[in-house]
Design a protein around this nucleic acid. Structure first.
Ligand SMILES: [Mn+2]
Ligand SMILES: [Mn+2]
Ligand SMILES: [Mn+2]
Ligand SMILES: [Mn+2]
Lengths: 151, 151
DNA sequence: GCGAAATGTTAGACAAGGCTAACAATCTGC
DNA sequence: GCAGATTGTTAGCCTTGTCTAACATTTCGC
C-alpha cells in the first residue's frame, strides 16, 4: 500500500525520515518543558514593573490557578535559579530570570504584533500569542518581525 | 510606580483585566492537555495511510520516545475513546479518533504551508508547525489560510 | 493595638508523561 | 518448526503541575 506504483495521491506524500521527525517532536517536548517557567518569569517581570513587586496572590489571579500551585511552581523556579524568594515576602528575579523574562517579553511582543498585523482581534491575538510564543524558532521570529515592519 | 502621572512609557502599558488574562492562560493550559493526543492520532492516521497499519514501534520511532511510553499513552487514548487496541495487535482509530486526526492534519497543513509561504525553510517549518498547530484559534487559522492563498 | 481579613505555606492526593528493567509474544530465516 | 531477533507489555520509579484542606503570618480597619 505504501509504495504502490499506482499511488499518485498528491499530499500526504511526506514520509520524511522518521529520525528527523523524532527530532522535531523532541524539540517540541523540550519547548513544552519551559513554557510554564517562561510564563511565570514574564509575568513576574511585568508585575514588578507595573506594581513595584510581584506577589504570589497576583500571580495566582493572573495565571488562573490556586495559591498552592503558585507556591510550588515558585519553589521550582527558585531551585532552577530564576527567582529568589523568602517566606511571606515578594518575589525577585535573579539575573538569569531577568534575562529570560526579557527574552520572553520580546518574543511575546513580536508574536502578538504579528497576529495583530494579520488582522486578528486583540483578545484572540493575546490568547494565541500566549501559546504560540513558546514554539517559535529564532528564524520564524525574524520573519514575523519583518512582516510587522513592512505592514 | 504603576500610576505615576509622569509615566509616558509606550509599551508595557498593558495591565489589562487580570481575569481576561487568567482566561487566556486557562485556554492555553487546556490546549496543552490535548497536544499529545493530537500528535498521536495525527501520526496514527498517517501511518495507517502510508504503511497500512499503525504499530507501536513505528510510533515510538517517530515520536522519539520509548516503547513503554507509547504503550501507556495508547492506553490513555483508548480510555478516552480515540483508538481501539488489542494486545500485540496494531492500533485503530475510532470514529472520534479519525475526526480528530482529520482536524489536526488540516491544522498542521495550514500552519506548515503558512510558515513556508512566509519564507521559512522546510525543516524549521516542520518543527515550528508541530508546536504551533496546537495553539492556533479558528480565526487565526483562517487568516493563515487566506495568506497562503494570496501568496 | 487588636481582631478580622487577606495572604502565604504546608501536607498530601492525583493524573500525565517520561524512563528502565524484566518478561512475554510474535515473527523470521534457515 | 525452532532459535534468535523483534516487538510489545507490565511493573515500578520519578518529576511536573494541578487541586483541597488545614494552618500560619501579615496587613488593615477601626
Ligand atoms: Mn505563554
Ligand atoms: Mn507570554
Ligand atoms: Mn504537534
Ligand atoms: Mn502535527
Amino acid at each position: 500500500m505504501h509504495d504502490d506504483p499506482h499511488e499518485v495521491l498528491p499530499a500526504a506524500s511526506d514520509d520524511r525520515s522518521p529520525d528527523l521527525r523524532a527530532e522535531a517532536f523532541q524539540g517540541v517536548r523540550a519547548a513544552r518543558r519551559n513554557e510554564l517557567a517562561e510564563d511565570y518569569v514574564e509575568l513576574i517581570a511585568e508585575l514588578i514593573h507595573s506594581h513595584g513587586e510581584a506577589r504570589p496572590v497576583d500571580i495566582a489571579t493572573r495565571m488562573g490557578v490556586t495559591a498552592p500551585t503558585v507556591a510550588k511552581t515558585l519553589d521550582r523556579l527558585a531551585r532552577d535559579g530564576l527567582i529568589t524568594r523568602a517566606k511571606y515576602r515578594s518575589i525577585f528575579l535573579t539575573e538569569q530570570g531577568r534575562a529570560l523574562a526579557k527574552e520572553c517579553r520580546h518574543r511575546h511582543e513580536i508574536v502578538l504584533r504579528f497576529l495583530l498585523s494579520l488582522g486578528l482581534d486583540a483578545e484572540t491575538a493575546e490568547r494565541d500569542a500566549e501559546g504560540i510564543e513558546h514554539h517559535v524558532s529564532e528564524r520564524t521570529l525574524e520573519l514575523f518581525a519583518a512582516f510587522v515592519s513592512r505592514n
